[in-house]
């Protein structure tokens, strides 16, 4: 019985099977394919951010004025410094990761353990910094007034710095006084049980208008970017008129609905993109910890190769790679 074909005549040829044109293991190749698809997800987000930004190109917040805080240095305006630190931490942890992979190739277990340990620490510092960045952004610093059309009016005054008049922001708290009001927050225990109301704003637009009237040096700054690439500052009369005619509510900080720095879309994209990236860092840390313990108990020593470290390393570098782009398009451009 020789009816089944056992010999196809292709043995040793390209289609004979057992051929590995890419010379990469299954796991590594699948990690690469996952990275490609994940890169497309992230570029979808960043391209959508670009879309919205192009849509409001003359009104978009200037990142330098939004992210100016550094932990422990209160009240100082230091744009870019903290995020540069975060970038450096992530690059550094990428370096320790690639050193771990290298040590793995040479089967040096202890080195792999230490380098992975440092990688995990770097990842944790990064996620922590991002949480701090979020908290600062949510809390806000100066407060602003949202107009009926959803635009933002900010306040400030010209101050003489080194012989030059520079527009400096002034917090609403510094000039507005909250008037007594009969309006209390509606809670479901004292009103309609199925309706809730979030906390009332600290100031009414009326309060802020009176504050602005009594402080002749304070001016309103709008979202519109002028030819010098700066936000437009209104004259005193325009400031009062604009606030009176269009002011709707006091906002402080940023969330998915309002954003004291400008269009709420900016905050939405910030939370979404850095959040999604932060989630990747977090899951990267978790996977790294799993692999870290596997290295310690000697799994890969027995397997006689450390390819698993290489695969998780690929993922970790990818997270770093994404951050490089987020950093550019959120903070620099």
């Amino acid at each position: 019985m020789n009816s089944t074909v056992v010999s196809t005549g292709t043995e040793g040829k390209t289609w004979g099977g057992g051929n590995q044109p890419l010379k990469a293991s299954y796991g590594k190749m699948m990690m690469w394919f996952f990275i490609v698809s994940d890169a497309l997800t992230f570029s979808g987000f960043l391209a959508a951010y670009g879309f919205s930004r192009f849509k409001f190109i003359d009104y978009w917040p200037i990142a330098d004025e939004v992210f100016t805080h550094v932990p422990f240095l209160h009240g100082q305006e230091l744009p870019m410094i903290y995020v540069a630190f975060m970038t450096f931490v992530l690059i550094m942890s990428s370096v320790t990761m690639v050193l771990a992979v290298d040590a793995g190739h040479q089967m040096q277990k202890n080195k792999v353990i230490w380098y992975m340990f440092f990688t995990i620490i770097g990842g944790i510092i990064f996620v922590g910094s991002q949480a701090w960045e979020w908290a600062t952004f949510i809390q806000g610093d100066y407060g602003a007034v949202q107009t009926k059309g959803g635009n933002i009016l900010q306040f400030g005054e010209y101050k003489n710095v080194d012989g030059e008049d520079v527009f400096k922001r002034v917090a609403v708290e510094e000039f507005a006084v909250a008037a007594h009001t009969e309006r209390t927050q509606h809670q479901n225990k004292n009103g309609l049980w199925f309706v809730d109301e979030s906390a009332l704003p600290a100031y009414s637009v009326e309060d802020i208008y009176h504050g602005l009237e009594s402080h002749p040096n304070i001016l309103v700054r709008t979202q519109t970017i002028n030819e010098e690439g700066e936000k437009t500052v209104l004259s005193r009369e325009e400031s009062l008129a604009q606030l009176k005619a269009n002011g709707k509510r006091y906002v402080k900080g940023a969330n998915l609905e309002v954003n004291e720095y400008g269009t709420p879309l900016f905050a939405d994209f910030f939370f979404f993109i850095t959040g999604f990236h932060g989630f990747h860092v977090f899951s990267g840390v978790v996977i790294n910890i799993i692999i870290f313990f596997n290295v310690i108990i000697g799994t890969y020593e027995r397997r006689k190769n450390y390819e698993m470290v290489e695969k998780v390393g690929l993922y970790w570098h990818f997270v770093d790679l994404v951050w490089v782009f987020v950093f550019t398009f959120f903070y620099l451009v």
Partner: peptide, 14 residues
């Protein structure tokens, strides 16, 4: 491809 399409469209809406 994606970036081109979305930025083009964003510019148009602007």
């Amino acid at each position: 491809y994606l970036v081109f399409i979305l930025l083009q469209e964003g510019g148009y809406i602007e």
